[in-house]
Amino acid sequence: MSIVNPPKDHHHAHHFDSAEQEYQTSKVGIWLFMVTEILMFGGLFVGFALFKNIYPEVFETGALFLDWHLGAANTIVLLTSSLTMALGIYYIQTGKREAAFWNLIATIACGAIFMVIKYFEYTHKFHMGLFPGGLFSFDPTSVAQLPAGLPEVLPANLALYFSFYFCMTGLHGIHVVSGMILIGWVAWRHKRGDFNPKYFTAVEGVGIFWHVVDLIWIYLFPLLYLV
């Protein structure tokens, strides 16, 4: 049974000379948007690097509260989602319409798995009072299971670590949810028959956005969980 409708012809908008010009113009727009994304996250990364240098003990102690197993699991989930996203475009290009649709759905499912794991990580920290900035209310005496290797005397500004942690992973999480909605939109359009091997600009653009989300996690995972 085929659930994806047959493709419709795409006519480029009247202000473009050709479909190719339309495609290339859209691509420049997407890459420019990705530059703003890199620089937005870049500001947080630079802040993280500088403060880690100034207060290494804060970042070492903070990282003890993170479980690298969950971070590694999420890395594999996001890499898999990048593969299914790329394959979604590949199958549109090669005219395998059903396979393309299910790869896009698999990408959304991976995004959902990522967010569920993130939810468990966040609630675990909230229960311990590990909040960002002024909301930080961690009290070692009231926590049943402290992470191994936690020093007797905690650094005074430990909250700084969790400000970075929640800002960076939170902003990233917002991007994952946005990406899932956007992939849902292109999957729906694909099902309607909007895309064909010669016209798939929206899927390509959303794909590039999704890969940037993966790209940022590739750096977040070792920085927060491993080093």
């Binding site: 990282a63 993170l66 690298w68 590694a72 995972f221 070792p222 969980y225 491993l226 080093v227």
Partner: peptide, 8 residues
């Protein structure tokens, strides 16, 4: 990256 990491 996991097997060479200090946390691991």
């Amino acid at each position: 990256t996991v097997v060479v990491a200090p946390s691991v």
